[in-house]
Design a protein around this nucleic acid. Structure first.
Lengths: 348, 348
DNA sequence: CTGAAAGCGCTAACAA
DNA sequence: TTGTTAGCGCTTTCAG
């Protein structure tokens, strides 16, 4: 037991211990032992292990994760990317994605991973994803939303295995996707509106994104099959511009059944309809999409197509973990659920 | 199972080049030169630099960031942590925080930083923050919300400089904080309600969090000075439980002026009031807090106290960058703004 | 302008 | 059980 540099009496513990070697010196052991002790490995004497751990705590020492991760080749980090392809200006993301992100972060945390968050605007570059997967910084990647970057994601998926993607399932695709059956959702919305007496439909939302296009097309197919007209009002998803666009478009829109691409749009539409004196659901009915928490708080509460965010987040993380350990994974396309509230009429 | 790493695509490609050394070998130079070339340093022959960069691109080579960061002692990573102290169960965070997070991520990205996101539930541990600051993984830390962890943050701030915090300014505090003048906001809300004729106030929201307590106390002071009663309805901020709590509390509440701790609560209250047949703003007026985008979309649109999220995010990042480069920074307490919409009455 | 060499701080295989 | 010895992959003096 030698403590020449560590006398609490003289000048206290000024020299900050920053490295394993530092701690090893004052503990009178080797760096290797300290490493094993701090990792709680079984092959160290319990007594010395405790001594070292106590010492570490006293000196507020924490091993440098960067070095540890480099050496062990496991980063414990998952990259989470939100590509903002179309909607370039929309820095403030959709609350749906934000909520999904939150839940993913929770799941990941519970599995002992840290999250490296990156929002990218692909613009003209095509290597935004490679830059992450090839960085050596992450053990895996979750992509939130395909935006208009389907091909980029596909090409990365060809050689990069530990990746899962929230979005739309396209037959034959390589990348592992988790998402909602948007076509089914679109169908449910249109059928519900028609069943409740709508005789002329409108779809509110831009269809640049692949998911929303699927909702639109399914609704359109239903409408056509029923011999009912459906017009497309390409309302922006950016919350800031939604209001004015709706104020411009709705007064001339004679549809009595509105299907909004998201709850946010629906909510905004509700307000505009009220302003121009159309009663919901008597004059016009409306169905949203997502079932965000606010959908139940609107007036009237919103009938909507629910996406299970919690399940989605869990699936994205579970599948990613499976892929990290070399397994292969299936896609997961969740069936959405029609949540009937008061923005559509009571069943006849 | 499956999954062959090498993509046998381009004309019988050899071993994947993974390291500087690999690339150096096929380029016929040393690793050092490759490093300099890829970093675009001026002290390499322009010609060899281009050759190496081309080679790197052809082989899809990207330097390992972990190693780079370890060596250079700059991680290019900022830790962003959301402590969930009170409200333990509330995994789905407040949309205000989520939006703030999004904007912070944007600002950070624009400054060339990556974001390491961590959500923590401090529970009984007190080292959740140290664990991040001492990890060697991040160049700095932003804490979103003090929750009930003021003391922990203070104690870390004593020895860890590159940190900024969103939250409430307490006189004499050490940690650099950016936030809103909550007391002023509370005062504005109460004064506005009273000026528009309210004669009995209620505050909706739990006051465990220091920011919300400040709003409450300021409102209370105003009410007292005006000789007007103010009751406190401790509504949970978790969106899921808000509705039922309000449905239980509001029918018995005779206040004609409601001040909600957040727009979300206000929105929920709006719905409940409508349900129980009280007209807003004729029977009862209501003021929210935050001015989230949805505040303008409620029915009636919500009068609220606006917090400038964008400015806050920018300030958090700017100050953090200053602190990273060794400077000292002042606190920033933004004055909130009263946004008058239709949930309060017209001026007499 | 380029190569050689010395680490960044940690882990793990191999000895002792 | 512990110490010793190599590196993880990169950057950066220091020579040449």
């Amino acid at each position: 037991m030698k403590n020449n540099e560590n006398h609490p009496g003289k000048n206290g513990e000024q020299q900050k211990v920053r490295t394993l070697a530092d701690l090893a010196r004052i503990a009178g052991v080797s760096a290797g032992t300290v490493s094993r002790a701090l990792a709680g490995k079984s092959l160290v004497n319990a007594e010395t292990r405790d001594r070292i751990q106590t010492l570490a705590r006293e000196h507020g020492f924490r091993p440098n994760q960067m070095a540890s991760k480099l050496r062990s080749q496991k980063t414990g980090l998952i990259g989470v990317v939100i590509p903002l392809g179309h909607e370039k200006r929309q820095h403030v993301s959709d609350p749906f994605f934000l909520t999904l992100l939150g839940q993913i972060a929770d799941e990941l945390t519970e599995s002992g991973y840290d999250v490296m968050l990156r929002r990218v605007i692909p613009d003209d570059t095509t290597d935004w994803l490679e830059r992450l997967t090839g960085s050596g910084m992450v053990d895996g990647v979750i992509v939130i939303g395909q935006s208009d970057q389907f091909d980029v994601i596909e090409s990365v998926a060809e050689h990069y295995h530990p990746m899962t993607v929230w979005g739309h399932r396209t037959p034959g695709q390589t990348h592992c996707v988790v998402g909602t059956d948007n076509a089914l959702g679109g169908r449910m919305a249109a059928e519900h509106l028609i069943a409740r007496g709508a005789r002329s439909l409108a779809f509110l939302g831009v269809t640049t994104g692949i998911e929303i296009r699927a909702r639109y097309e399914a609704a359109k197919a239903v409408a056509e099959a029923a011999g009912i007209p459906l017009v497309h009002l390409p309302i922006d998803l950016a919350a800031a511009t939604m209001g004015p666009q709706l104020e411009a478009a709705l007064p001339d829109c004679k549809a009595d059944g509105l299907f909004a691409a998201s709850d946010l749009i629906a909510m905004s539409a509700l307000r505009v309809l009220h302003q121009i004196g159309r009663k919901v659901p008597d004059d016009v009915q409306i169905v949203g999409f997502d079932d965000l928490l606010l959908a139940s708080q609107t007036m009237p509460p919103l009938t909507t197509i629910r996406q299970e965010i919690g399940l989605g987040a869990k699936a994205l993380v579970d599948k990613l973990k499976a892929r990290i350990s070399g397994e292969d994974t299936d896609h997961l396309v969740n069936a959405p659920q029609l949540i009937v509230r008061e923005s559509t009429r009571k069943a006849a």
